[in-house]
């Protein structure tokens, strides 16, 4: 009686994919729909509003947001480098790049925290205006995604990396899946940045 689930690591010949790859892409498809719903809400509320105010009216800082954009783009590059290092069997390089990726995520959240507290100190809360409601909800949900991706990457950097010894190929697949999620999170920010700060 064969118990193991097939194609967890090796691709199924006729589909050319392993289970994890399909699973993560389906998950990302649903994430696209989630943020699609949020952006649709933004559009409908903005178009229907009689008193729309752009981010600059509430002192949203473009330099800080641009710094955050740079931070996330950098983290995507290091994420791919971490994966590429595993493909070349260079584990110490993997550790380095993955560490930078996690730190970039952390840096992003620190800047986000500075932005949030500065808004609060000026008396700007989600309930103050419909723009701020959207700003806090969209960036807040994105922030939860950043924390989730950062947490899983930290796990893959630390205790999860033991798998490199026992099942290197499966571990590489995991890093790739995590990288796909991380790229999605970064892409969402690349849309959020102009929508909330510039337009």
């Amino acid at each position: 009686m064969s118990m193991a689930i097939p194609y967890t690591v090796e691709p199924r010949p006729d589909t050319g994919l392993n289970n994890v790859k399909i699973g993560i892409w389906l998950f990302l498809a649903s994430e696209v729909m989630l943020f699609g719903g949020l952006f649709a809400g933004y559009i409908i509320l903005r178009v229907g509003s009689t008193d729309w105010q752009p981010g600059s009216a509430f002192g949203l800082s473009v330099p800080l947001a641009f710094t955050n954009t740079l931070v996330l783009i950098t983290s995507s590059v290091t994420m791919v480098m971490a994966w590429a290092s595993l493909i070349r069997k260079d584990f110490s390089k993997y550790r380095l790049y993955m560490g930078i990726t996690v730190l970039c995520g952390l840096g992003f959240m620190v800047i986000k925290y500075i932005e949030y507290t500065s808004k609060f100190s000026h008396g700007y809360y989600p309930s103050t205006h419909i723009f701020l409601a959207l700003y806090f909800t969209l960036t807040g949900l994105h922030g939860i995604h950043v924390i989730a991706g950062m947490g899983y990457n930290a796990y893959l950097w630390g205790p999860g990396a033991k798998m490199w010894e026992t099942a290197p190929e499966q571990f590489t697949n995991r890093v790739e899946a995590s990288g796909l999620f991380w790229h999605f999170v970064d892409l969402v920010w690349i849309f959020l940045f102009p929508v909330l700060y510039l337009l």
Binding site: L26, A29, S30, E31, M33, L34, G37, G41, A133, T137
Partner: peptide
């Protein structure tokens, strides 16, 4: 289920806010 539920998730976040 995969593609239709997330917008309700978004709406639920809005209503929770």
């Amino acid at each position: 289920l995969l593609l239709a539920f997330p917008p309700l998730q978004a709406a639920s976040f809005f209503q929770l806010m």
